[in-house]
């Protein structure tokens, strides 16, 4: 059975042509098409990597929203029982900070999707796409440092 054709396989085949192009075995037009196709593959890889990162940010954002909602609900229940009334307003305010973190994640996703739209618009007309400036953002659970770690680094 013949192997399934894939973009990666096609990219590999095109890359094998590069040495022959260097040796002048292809016309200028053929060389131009091969290089243009390889550039498109590079752009595809970048876009898909960014989209994959975006889905991770969305997953984290959902978890953070759920945690914040649970905290707010617990505080609201305490308030209903008239407990800890002194600090409760401040604690509710602190819990609302989730909006900032979630907002940063959604901004990153929005930026990626916009760049993807730009990329699609440019496909077929040019291979020149401006690389997206991706901020690292809030990071992912298990991959980031804590306040204690930051304190140690600050010395």
């Amino acid at each position: 059975m013949n192997p399934q054709p894939s973009l990666n396989a096609l990219q590999s085949i095109l890359e094998t042509l590069l040495p022959q192009m260097e040796q002048g075995k292809f016309s200028k037009v053929e060389c131009h098409f091969v290089r243009a196709l390889l550039e498109q593959f590079k752009n595809h890889s970048r876009v898909f990597a960014e989209l994959e990162l975006s889905t991770r940010h969305l997953k984290e954002a959902l978890g953070e929203t759920e945690n914040a909602a649970n905290t707010l609900l617990t505080l609201a229940e305490d308030l209903q029982r008239d407990e800890r009334t002194e600090d409760i307003g401040l604690q509710i305010s602190e819990a609302c900070a989730f909006q900032d973190i979630v907002g940063q994640r959604l901004k990153l996703v929005q930026k990626t999707l916009y760049s993807y739209v730009d990329f699609l618009a440019l496909m077929g007309t040019t291979t020149q796409t401006s690389p997206a400036t991706i901020m690292s953002g809030p990071g992912f659970t298990g991959e980031v440092i804590s306040q204690d770690d930051a304190d140690r680094l600050m010395g």
Partner: peptide, 13 residues
């Protein structure tokens, strides 16, 4: 900041 990578802390320091 939400930037929680050691390199960010070091750069800021």
């Amino acid at each position: 900041t939400a930037e929680r990578k050691p390199e960010n802390v070091i750069a800021a320091k």
